[in-house]
Write a protein that binds this DNA or RNA. Structure first.
Length: 555
RNA sequence: UGGGGUGUAGCCAAGCGGUAAGGCAACGGGUUUUGAUCCCGUGAUGCGUAGGUUCGAAUCCUACCACCCCAGCCA
């Protein structure tokens, strides 16, 4: 059977890897790597790369290196290193002993640079950056050779050594690979492989004042540590000939193969470290972990489970086609995960006072409520019921349409896990604002007793106001209304709305920070903080809302 | 206009010469003490376009079109 048939249904990268492993490339060994530059926080796009690199390695019981591409000390920091490690761990991946840094290889990389010089395949260029830029040519026109291109090997060796020893200023010289100034691929027009940077490095301190460029460092890091498959995004596709040029011309222990896949874009969000950093610096968000950010730390704060992120990446798939995924796919994945795992609980976001006039004043009874409608194993809790309750403002309409089947004057509705009530009277303030409903309950309709055959069109949630817990809730929407935002796009003014006056059912006093709940009919929420017995929740995602859809359709 | 890529439904995505899987979305309907969940049903005579090869083409060939990436001493 051909490999194509054998691995049908797998993504193209897995097909290639299976083929390589089966046919004994690199002795049938597999090793991948996830190589972030520690110059920002990881975002949802990186999650796909993490799932690919760590995921495939896991399937083969092979190593996946977490390797920091730390070759530019001007932009990098330990804060980012730490956040990246935390995020990878959060996603549930373990690099074990395979933690690496490009900077770990600086000595070797330096040696390989000398090897290139000795082979007359690299030279020290002493042009200014402006001159180098001007001689590189354009997309349509070839470049021109540097006047320093034919420097004798010994002179190059001496100059490169003096660069290393700090005898020159930034920009005075660079080391360039000697390839082809007229190549149609600009990456091959004598790319710079080392530059002078008088800057301390977070790991190597002041040891170096020359640092390798990405293409050189990345290729060599892969080869030195034994990575066999270097999986990266599409923008590096035309760097592959350079990657291979290094492999062809240097004496290296392994021959890694670079394979490119398309990056993941999400509607209504930006996934560019640069632009995300701008949001943080400008103060549009509270930080890299703002719950509206598409960063992994933001999604975590928002309450998205790591398992849902991974499943999302799974559903998105791996191809070379440019893709912008709709929010609905992410949200449905999150809901699916939360639906089965979250306890149900009742909370009123916009309270409307209800007095049940025929219920004994001052009396409280405890009602049994299941924590999950489908999973008995998740248990139940006792809800206090009393004469004074709170319902959601939206669950009452004074002059309802036919398709509104909640509470309205004279209409009956079930209070979930409690009784059926009827609205008898509407009380308004001097502005005509509805401030209270006077209702009566039917004692025969107590939940679970089966003593009444009465049918009502809906059941609404409620909280006993005498027993409620207070706090606040943050409701989030996407940071941009524009499905394909750029840096000019305005921030969605409703991206964060705080609800100041919610009422939570009593059982929530025992909730621990970080736990997730479904507030029945309202959505999924995570407990963010508890201060002075006040609970602060973040909304993770809404429930699907058919009612909202009906209203929207009617305009 | 040089080079490198990519085009299958609104968004993803299988397919690999034998007659278009699946998910999300949308739209119907059923169950429901969450307008949730769950269940059932509906969408391509068509695979960027036009030709060609073949008994047979999304799959092979040719031409064209559209879109993305590349001219940092960033990664």
């Amino acid at each position: 059977m051909s490999d194509k048939k054998k691995y049908r249904g797998k993504d193209f990268i897995r097909q290639m890897i299976h083929h390589d492993v089966d046919s004994g490339v690199n002795d049938g060994r597999l090793a991948t790597r996830f190589p972030p530059e520690p110059n920002g926080y990881l975002h949802i796009g990186h999650a796909l790369s993490i799932c690919i690199n760590f995921g495939i390695a896991k399937e083969f019981d092979a190593p996946c290196y977490l390797r920091f591409d730390d070759t530019n000390p001007a932009k990098e920091s330990d804060e980012y290193v730490n956040s990246i490690m935390e995020d990878v761990k959060w996603l549930g991946f373990d690099w074990g002993n395979d933690l690496a840094h490009a900077s770990d290889y600086f000595d070797s990389i330096h040696e390989f640079a000398i090897e290139l010089i000795e082979k007359d395949l690299a030279y020290v260029d002493s042009q200014t950056s402006e001159e180098i830029k001007n001689s590189r040519g354009t997309l349509n026109a070839p470049g021109t050779k540097s006047p320093y291109r034919d420097r004798p090997i010994s002179e190059n060796l001496g100059l490169f050594d003096r660069m290393k020893n700090g005898e020159f200023e930034n920009g005075e010289h660079v080391l360039r690979a000697k390839i082809d100034m007229s190549s149609p691929n600009i990456n091959l027009r004598d790319p710079i492989i080392y530059r002078i940077l008088h800057l301390d490095h977070q790991r190597t301190g002041s040891k170096w004042c020359i640092y390798p460029m990405y293409d050189f460092a990345h290729t060599l890091s892969d080869a030195i540590e034994g990575t066999t498959h270097s999986l990266c995004t599409l923008e590096f596709e035309d760097h592959r000939p350079l990657y291979e040029w290094f492999l062809d011309n240097l004496d290296l222990p392994t021959r890694p193969r670079q394979i490119e896949f398309s990056r993941l874009n999400l509607e209504h969000t930006i996934t560019s470290k640069r632009k995300l950093a701008d949001l943080v610096v400008s103060g549009h968000v509270s930080g890299w972990d703002d719950p509206r950010m598409p960063t992994l730390s933001g999604l975590r704060k928002r309450g998205y489970p790591a398992s849902a992120i991974k499943e999302f990446c799974n559903r998105v798939g791996i191809t070379k086609k440019d893709k912008t995924i709709e929010m609905s796919l992410l949200e449905s994945t999150v809901r699916e995960e939360l639906d089965s795992s979250c306890n149900r609980v009742m909370a009123i976001l916009n309270p409307l006072k209800v007095t049940i006039k025929n219920y004994p004043e001052g009396e409280t009874e405890m009602l049994d409520a299941r924590n999950h409608p489908k999973d008995k194993e998740m248990g139940s809790r006792q809800l206090p019921f009393s004469q004074n309750i709170l319902i959601e403002k939206d669950d009452f309409m004074e002059s309802p349409n036919e398709d509104f089947f909640r509470l309205s004057p004279g209409a009956e509705v079930r209070l979930r896990y409690a009784y059926i009530i009827r609205c008898d009277e509407v009380i308004k303030d001097e502005n005509g604002e509805i401030v209270e409903l006077i209702c009566s309950y039917d004692p025969e309709t107590k939940s679970g007793t089966g003593t009444s055959n009465k049918k009502v069109k809906s059941a609404i949630h409620w909280v006993s106001s005498d027993h409620s817990v207070s706090g606040n809730v943050n409701l989030f929407e996407t940071l941009y209304n524009d499905p394909n935002p750029d840096s000019e796009s305005p921030i969605n003014q409703n991206s964060m709305v705080e609800i100041h006056n919610p009422a939570f059912e009593k059982s929530l006093v025992d909730a621990v920070v970080g736990s997730r709940f479904q507030f029945e009919r309202n959505g999924y929420f995570i407990l963010n903080t508890v201060e002075d017995e006040r609970l602060s929740f973040n909304r993770i995602v809404t429930l699907k809302d058919t009612w909202a859809k009906i209203q929207k359709k009617k305009g």
